[in-house]
Simulated assay, not measured.
Amino acid sequence: MKTVIYYFTGTGNSLAAARKVAAALGETELVPIASLAITPGTITPDADRVGIVCPVYDCGVPVMVARFAERLDLSGTKYTFAVVTMGGMGVSALHQLNRILRERQGRGLDAAFAVTMPGNFPPLARPPEGEKCEKILSKADKRFAEIAETIGSGRSVSPGFAPISGLVKALTYGPFAKGTHDASAAFSISDACTGCGTCARVCPTGNIEMPDDRPVWNQRCELCCACLHFCPTEAIQLHVMRGTKGRGRYRHPDLTVADMEAQR
């Protein structure tokens, strides 16, 4: 059975999830959601199974992912699933995707999964390091194997009951979604910047330009923070909540600059 997995990633957790599930299922195509963002119109996958894999932002899905889901035509699909990766809570993101698909298709997700992975939003909490990080990743890998087995067998899995996650989403996701594209104003660059351009290369939306070898953020930010985490000198800071100076950085150990560039 042919499978297409659409994914969005900022620090590699969701790409790692998509790859693990795809490898176990076999005959699976991985398609970056960001590569479809500039293409107007309906998206009709040529596959029997369709999956969406993405991170959780403010207990919902990234804005780009929500808009992508609204454009999906799954009329020819037999089985639809979603996997969200999260540092804390976020099952409500699965309910959001399920609702979008129901409104668009008249049917929702056949299976929905939430997997804990290393948190990577430093303004909220320092990313885990060392052995703690490795344990989280190892546990997640085992979970991906279980998820792939469930998908392969065609079993149904509901998103589950998540009242606290739903409450947090109700309070925070609206302002996040409304302001995310303007979040560029919250980034700054220090004199530690070497002008290497890595931030521009890894941005999945192509939001960063490099005039005079200094990054400039435009109005297509998704707050994935890839620029923040990939900067080799930690010259980029995000000025929200507790800020990011001295609060650590994270990206999945298998993620490369080339992986990020491949999203566009």
Score class of each variant (00 low, 15 high):
Ser165Arg: 04
Ile164Leu: 10
Ala148Ile: 05
Leu101Ser: 00
Ala111Ser: 08
Thr116Arg: 15
Ala183Lys: 09
Ala170Ile: 11
Phe161Asn: 09
Asp182Glu: 15
Ala145Val: 07
Ile136Lys: 03
Phe121Arg: 10
Thr180Leu: 12
Leu137Met: 05
Ile151Phe: 02
Gly174Phe: 07
Gly106Ser: 04
Thr172Phe: 15
Glu129Val: 13
Lys139Cys: 10
Ser165Cys: 01
Phe187Ser: 03
Pro122Ala: 08
Lys169His: 14
Ala148Leu: 04
Gly119Val: 14
Met117His: 05
Phe176Trp: 07
Ala185Pro: 06
Val115Ser: 04
Thr172Trp: 15
Leu167Asp: 06
His181Ile: 12
Gly152Cys: 01
Ala112Asp: 10
Ser184Arg: 13
Lys178Gln: 15
Val168Gly: 08
Ala114Glu: 05
Thr116Phe: 12
Ser153Met: 09
Ser165Tyr: 03
Phe113Ala: 13
Ala114His: 08
Asp110Arg: 02
Gln105Ala: 06
Ala112Leu: 02
Ala145Tyr: 04
Phe121Thr: 12
Pro175Gln: 01
Ile136Cys: 06
Glu103Asp: 09
Gly119Pro: 00
Met117Gln: 10
Arg99Phe: 00
Leu171Ile: 14
Leu167Gln: 10
Leu101Asn: 02
Gly106His: 03
Arg107Gln: 13
Pro163Ala: 08
Ser188Phe: 02
Leu137Glu: 03
Asp110Asn: 10
